[in-house]
Simulated assay, not measured.
Amino acid sequence: MTRRIIAFTFLSAIILLVGCSDSVKSVETEYSGSGGMTQWNIDPAVYLYHYQNGFSGRDALGYDEQLQTVWSRLGAATTCNVRYNKRGLIQQLMQRFGEKPVTHELNGIGFHSIQSRKVPDFCNASRIKEINKALNRYRKGKFD
């Protein structure tokens, strides 16, 4: 019970902070493709770059790079209101990648959902199609 309260408090704080962030599309700047995910307030263009090209090196934030990609697609599903069995997939992720359920829920899926919500026009038809394809692979245990 205490873990749930702590997790809920943590998630509430993240949501509050995101609500206070600037959701206006940032000025297009050159991005080297490295280090942007380590910033306190991640630029939507940086997040989209890594969503499309992968979360590698320090931008994987200490987690398996493939796991970050899976989390990003599950977070995108949350953002775009694409339904899936979150509990079931978290169980599969725990078997494949380890980590605790709260890590998958908050540090993974929740974090990526928050970041994708800041990207203008993120939930376009093409992206929703891509999310559904990824979900179908994940349901079969194919996380590569």
Rank of each mutant, 00 (worst) to 15 (best):
S32H: 07
Y31R: 05
A45V: 06
K25T: 13
E30F: 14
N41G: 12
N53Q: 08
L48I: 10
V24F: 15
Q66S: 09
R73Q: 12
Y31C: 04
V82R: 00
D22T: 08
I42T: 10
Y47W: 06
V27T: 15
R83Q: 12
S32P: 01
K25H: 11
G19V: 08
T69D: 10
T78V: 15
R83F: 09
R83N: 15
K86Y: 01
D59W: 01
Y51W: 12
V70C: 06
K25I: 12
L74V: 10
T79Q: 13
Q52T: 12
L61F: 04
V70A: 07
N81M: 07
V24H: 13
Y47N: 01
W71A: 08
W71M: 06
A76N: 00
A45M: 09
K86W: 00
Q66P: 02
L74T: 05
T69Q: 11
L48C: 02
T79K: 04
T38K: 12
R58T: 12
W71E: 01
V70E: 02
G19Q: 09
N81K: 15
L74N: 03
H50E: 00
S34Y: 15
T38L: 09
T79H: 12
Q52C: 04
L74P: 04
Y31V: 04
T38R: 12
G35Q: 07
Y49S: 05
A77I: 02
G62M: 01
Q68V: 09
S72Y: 00
G62I: 02
A77P: 01
T38D: 07
L16H: 07
Y47P: 03
V24W: 08
P44R: 03
D22F: 05
Y84E: 03
Y84W: 12
G35H: 03
F55M: 06
D59M: 06
S21W: 13
L67S: 10
D43A: 11
T78C: 14
G35L: 07
A77V: 01
G62H: 01
P44C: 09
Y51I: 03
L61R: 15
S26I: 03
K86V: 14
L67H: 04
T78P: 00
T29W: 00
L16A: 14
E28Q: 14
G36T: 08
K25A: 15
T79V: 05
G19S: 13
K25Y: 07
Y47H: 09
S72P: 00
P44W: 03
K25M: 11
G75Y: 00
N81H: 09
G75Q: 02
R73E: 13
Y47M: 05
T78I: 05
T78R: 15
K86P: 01
S56I: 11
D43P: 06
D59T: 05
W40Y: 14
P44S: 14
E28I: 13
S32R: 09
E28P: 04
